[in-house]
């Protein structure tokens, strides 16, 4: 069975630097695939290139359809949800407005699901997103992606900069998400990855250097070689 998302030979140039140098990766349908790698190896760039947020070259297929030439909004309307690295909630808009904006035309928004996962969003509906704490903003960013039914979620470092208690909260939410959805997750916290991921893909210097089951992370030598010391969790 072909993978839900097939990426072949993906290249991205930023100015004079060749950031992605032919990334090949597959995301199977169902569950979470974790995209790992040291800082600056191109994880975020990969997600953004998949979404068409930066000029890219190569082949990207979603369910067999080539999407590498499409505009961002068209790609997203095919059923891609995106939780960006720095949350990127709209600070001047209220929580309600942030959510409302994310509802795609002609789709039933899953407000029940989102409010069930993040009851706080309901209470704080009229508050400006810019006045929320980092953790609350992360809830808006994840909630906004989950409002729609997605074929694939792209989630970029959802636990970055969060307090340990919040990291556990986010992990719990993602665990629930993984039961019913497919996600490509960029994550530095290996404990979270071990708990959530069904497969791991490791990126180094713009290329995929390792693919395998999450149990590979038990191999300390491998982790040390591919991810550096700071990552052993």
């Amino acid at each position: 069975m072909p993978a839900l998302l097939e990426v072949r030979d993906l290249h991205v140039h930023l100015g004079e630097s060749h950031v992605l140098q032919g990334v090949d990766l597959d995301v199977p349908a169902g569950g979470i695939t974790a995209l790992l790698g040291r800082n600056g190896v191109g994880k975020t760039t990969t997600l953004r290139a998949l979404l068409g947020l930066m000029p890219r070259r190569g082949s990207v297929r979603l369910d067999g359809d080539a999407i590498e030439r499409e505009a961002t909004h068209r790609i997203v309307l095919r059923g891609l949800g995106y939780v960006p690295e720095d949350r990127d909630v709209f600070a001047g808009l209220t929580v309600d407005e942030n959510l409302k904006l994310a509802v795609r035309d002609g789709e039933d928004a899953r407000y029940d699901l989102v409010y069930d996962l993040f009851p706080e969003l309901k209470q704080r509906g009229r508050q400006r997103a810019g006045t929320l704490s980092g953790g609350q903003q992360q809830m808006v960013a994840i909630g906004r992606a989950l409002l729609n039914r997605n074929r694939l979620l792209l989630i970029d470092e959802p636990t970055k900069g969060l307090a340990p208690a919040l990291v556990a909260d986010v992990a719990r939410v993602l665990e629930r998400v993984a039961e019913s959805e497919t996600a490509l997750l960029v994550e530095q916290n290996l404990a979270v990855v071990r708990r959530l991921a069904g497969a791991i893909v490791v990126l180094d210097q713009g290329r995929v250097v390792h693919t395998g089951p999450p149990t590979d992370l038990d191999d300390e030598a491998l982790v040390h070689r591919l991810l550096g010391v700071g990552h052993a969790a």
Binding site: T72, H73, V76, Y82, D88
Partner: peptide, 12 residues
């Protein structure tokens, strides 16, 4: 605020 993020929500 952030044009790119608007397109990333599927909005033209």
């Amino acid at each position: 605020e952030n044009r790119a993020m608007v397109t990333a929500l599927g909005i033209d």
